[in-house]
Amino acid sequence: MKEKDARVEGKDTHQLVMYVEKDDGSYDSIMTGSYLVKNYVDDFWDKKKKIEDEFLGKIKNGEATPIMLYMMLEELTEVELAGRVGISVRKVKKHLTPEGFETMTLRTLKRYAEVFDVPVVNLMQAVVTKKSGLQIRAEKTKNPLFYFLRIEG
C-alpha cells in the first residue's frame, strides 16, 4: 500500500503502525490513525447500545438476566463464559434465567463481575438518568463487594 493511501488523519483515531510503500519506493513502517475508527466506530457503539437496550428491556420484563446482557455485549459463548468464571456450562445456562440467577452465590457473582470487569452492583442494577453531563463512577473499597457510586456534575 502506498503511504498516501494508508494515512488516516483526524483526532480521536488511535494510532497504529502499518508497513507501506513510501514515496521513494522503500518499504517501511509509518504511524497513522485508524481507518476503522475514523469511519466505523460510531456504528460499533450504536450496535452495542441496541443490544444494551434490548436486553435491559428483557431483564425488566423478567425474561433475561444481567449475565445474558454482558455475555452478549462481550460476545462470549456459554462455553467460554463458563471457562472464564470457572463453573460448568450447565450452571451458566442456569444463571441466564431469572430463576437461576437468584440462586447464585455471591462468590460466583463476584467472579462474573471480574470477567465482565464491572462492579458487582452492576449485575443487579442499571443507573438511569435524564440529566446529561453527569460523571458516574463506581469507586472501589477494600471490600470487593462494596462500592461508592460517585455521581458528580
Binding site: 500500500m1 497504529l16 502499518m18 508497513y19 507501506v20 485508524s34 481507518y35
Partner: peptide
Amino acid sequence: LEDQGTGGAGYRFM
C-alpha cells in the same frame, strides 16, 4: 483485516 493485530492486509504488507 485492518486494525486488530494488524489484520490480513497489514500482515501482507509486513
